[in-house]
Amino acid sequence: MSLDTVVEDIRDEARTRAEEIRAEGEQRAEQIIEEAEADAEEVEADAEAEVERTIEQEREQALSSAKLEAKQARLEARRELLQDVYDDVESEIAALEGERREALTRTLLSAAAPEFEGADSARVRGREEDADLLEMICEDHDGFEVGEPVDCLGGVVVESEGSRVRVNNTFDSVLEEVWEDNLREISERLFEER
């Protein structure tokens, strides 16, 4: 075997080995590229899923916020309507006249009178416009006299200094009590919530 043959064998072996290394390198490079592409696809899918979750969450929050705003607007409209009804009732009560006003005022004073049995005197106060009516009604009750007017729709406030008793039987207080006791029913009738 000559030196040239040995050199050629070594070269062939080196070329074969180089070819094997290059093939292994290409195979490894392809494997790395495939893994990188798979990782990139996974990262992209995760990112898309996260974006979808974020969009859904923001949509739910916006929907929830819109529902809350609508509910608040509905409640505010109901409050305003209930206040309008209350104001209308107050106006109707303030406008009561004649026998109806007298009968109601007498009833309210008679309801308060038992609280002042045994008292030497009681002061009956009411709306300034009802002063003459109160004078007339007080004549039916011993020791009752008309006092300074109070700001109210009508009815009476009866006080006794001796016993420090005060009974508020004004139209306002009766309306407030009736309103509070029947607010649910009033609301149901106005808004048909049955």
Rank of each mutant, 00 (worst) to 15 (best):
V158Y: 07
R194D: 10
G126T: 07
F191G: 11
S64C: 00
F116M: 04
E50Q: 10
A122P: 00
V178F: 13
D4N: 06
A18V: 05
A119V: 07
L109Q: 05
E26W: 08
R74I: 01
D84F: 07
A47W: 04
E20F: 06
A111F: 03
I21A: 12
L75W: 15
G126S: 14
I93S: 01
G98Q: 05
E192I: 10
A111R: 08
G25R: 09
A95G: 10
A122Q: 07
L68Y: 14
A40H: 06
D172N: 11
R100C: 02
E20L: 09
A70I: 00
G143M: 12
S121F: 13
E44A: 15
G162I: 12
E92M: 10
V157H: 03
D88I: 03
V43F: 12
D4F: 01
Q57V: 06
E97H: 11
F144W: 14
R189L: 14
E148I: 12
S163C: 04
R74Q: 13
E97I: 00
E135Y: 08
M1W: 06
V89G: 02
E99W: 01
L134T: 04
G126I: 11
R194G: 05
D87G: 02
S65T: 09
E161C: 01
V167G: 02
T16Q: 12
L183C: 00
C138P: 01
I10N: 12
V178K: 14
L183A: 03
Q72I: 12
R17P: 00
R74K: 11
R189A: 14
A119M: 00
F144G: 05
V146D: 04
E80Y: 02
A38R: 15
A131Q: 12
E188C: 01
R106P: 01
A94V: 02
E30M: 11
Q27E: 15
V7G: 02
I55W: 02
E13G: 08
